[in-house]
Every structure is written in structure tokens, then in C-alpha cells.
Design a protein around this nucleic acid. Structure first.
Lengths: 153, 153
DNA sequence: CAATATAGTTAGCTATGCTAACTAAATTCA
DNA sequence: TGAATTTAGTTAGCATAGCTAACTATATTG
């Protein structure tokens, strides 16, 4: 049986190609940017977790795992790595000794901002050929996708 | 010394925030999508390489590594995994016996398309809340970034 | 024909994801 | 109160995926 062409299918079809290209583009974009981030000496998962701490303040391991959409054992190892590099400080919660409060150290804040700077300069140099209109379109789209992510089921 | 505010700095500043949010958004978007892709039983690097083969035709290992921006040993292992799962077929080049031609099997094509379908349905369900204008803005931005990637140094 | 260059593999390291099974602390409730 | 359960995090062990260094095998060059 042939599919009926409906408003729903037309929408799905648009979403189909957007989703597929978006996926491929995201993969290849991240591959490139990651190569700048190696200069920091820390991997992407650690930098991403550190970023959450720097911009969102102290968190427990579980909260951090939830924010980063990984399981607790994974975040446990990421945090251990960050602590080993002295980028975060771990203090036990006196109210509940099972919990830990994880916060960035000054060194962690500095490293994150330096990495951010490097990444921006690198990306910006490649976005240099874009017109202001194109750049603002990318910004707008990023905003839209950020909203989608925050409302994700 | 305080930074002089110039047209250049204004542009850098815009690129700064776009690049940073783009990076974070791409990371978190891929984390979500990857969870759909596990249904395929293959990891992201394998699916991405397979996609290149399905849409771009047969390639040598070196060409595939270059296309995926990874080193030959990495691609060697990715291809070995794809071959083990019978998703690609490897034939030696009779002209140059150091080379191999890697092409997707029918099974590989099928798996890729099924995964694509799953991914689209998943992503589309989360893009469902967007207006047609927002969706086309995301599409446009993806197009722009795709062009940036193709012209990447 | 010997030296060199090229294509790909192997070995071994790190990082990042997972599940299963564990420890320790807090909470529930009989 | 004290035993059972729940919750927070860790440990162990597996797989994928990235890298470099060192290797094999084949082509090319001088």
C-alpha cells in the first residue's frame, strides 16, 4: 500500500532531511573542534562536565551525571580525572555523607576559559567567510536547538 | 590595557558566543541521538564511516580515513568491525595489492537506512514543537555549517 | 637491484560509554 | 528501636574509538 500524502507526512519529510544532515554536520563539526581541545590536555567529556560546573555552579555527582546524560559510574570516572588534574574540588556534604559537592577550582575555571578562547578563535576563523546574516542564522538555530534540548523528554 | 572596541572585535564577540553554544549544543544533541543509534548494534564511528560508503561509493581505507578525519589505524579497526558484522565487503585492488576497496554490502545499506529512519523519527518527534519557520531556520543553518565544513582548512 | 616511499596492520596507551555488583549512609516502618 | 529498603557513589570488567610507534608488504625510483 502506498503512503498517503498528508500534512503530517510533509512535515516528517522536512524533519527527515533536517535531522539527518544535522546529525552528520554535528559529528563532523565536533571532530574538528575536538582537535583544538586536545591542547587543553583534557578530553571532551571532562571539558563538558567542567563547563557545566563553571557555568552552573557546584553539583553532586548524580546531578552532574544527569546534566551530562551519562550514568553515574561514567561521571564518577570523569570527576576522578578532573580531580586528579586539580580542576575540581570535592567536598563531602555534611548533611548527607553519601553525597559530594563538586566545584571547579580557580585552575579549572582558568583552563575552561582558555579552552573556550582557543575554540572560539579556531571556529571564528572558519566562520569568517560567513555574512553577518548567515552568522545570526546559525546563532538563531543554535538557540532553537538549545531550547529543544532543554525540553527533551 | 583595555581592549579597543572595533568592528573586528564586535564580529569576534558574536562568533565567540555562537561558537561556544554551537559546540555545547552539538555535544548534547549527539549524546541524545547516539542513544537511538545503539539499536543498530554499531557504534557512531562505524555508522558514520558506513554512511560515507553508502552515499559516496567504494573507497580505499586511506580515503575513508581522510573523509572521516581519523588516522589510518583508527579506520583500520573501524573497517574491521564493519567487516566482522558483514556490513562492508573488502576486495583487494588488483592494480596495487597494498590497497583495498571497501564497499557496503546490501546488509550494510539496509542497516544504515533503518538507522537513519529510526534517528529521523526520534529527532522529528522532538522537533515536532517547532514552527515551520524554526525548522527551516535549523535547516538553513545546517546547510551553512555544512558548507563551512566542506571549505574547512 | 637497492633504497625509498606508500598502504595498511599490530601493539599498546588513554578516554568514554555501558552493566552488574558492591559499600556505605540515610530512611522507612513494623 | 532495629531490620529492611532505598539512595549515592565506587569498583570491576567489557566494548568502542582515538592516538603514536613500530611493523609488513608492495610499489616506485635512482
Amino acid at each position: 500500500m502506498a503512503k498517503k500524502i498528508t500534512r503530517q507526512n510533509a512535515k516528517s519529510s522536512a524533519a527527515f532531511s533536517v535531522a539527518d544532515r544535522l546529525h552528520s554536520t554535528a559529528i563532523h563539526l565536533l571532530r574538528r573542534v575536538r582537535k583544538q581541545d586536545v591542547a587543553s590536555g583534557e578530553g571532551p567529556a571532562r571539558l563538558s562536565a567542567l563547563s557545566v560546573l563553571v557555568f552552573g555552579g557546584a553539583k553532586t555527582l548524580g546531578d552532574l551525571a544527569a546534566a551530562e546524560q551519562v550514568k553515574p559510574p561514567t561521571m564518577s570516572r570523569i570527576v576522578a580525572g578532573l580531580a586528579r588534574s586539580k580542576l575540581v574540588q570535592i567536598t563531602p556534604d555534611p548533611q548527607d555523607r553519601r553525597r559530594m559537592s563538586i566545584r571547579p577550582t580557580p585552575r579549572g575555571v582558568k583552563l575552561l576559559h582558555e579552552g573556550r578562547q582557543r575554540r572560539i578563535e579556531y571556529l571564528a576563523s572558519h566562520l569568517a567567510g560567513l555574512t553577518p546574516e548567515e552568522l545570526s542564522q546559525v546563532a538563531e538555530s543554535t538557540e532553537i536547538l538549545g531550547r529543544v534540548l532543554r525540553n527533551w523528554a
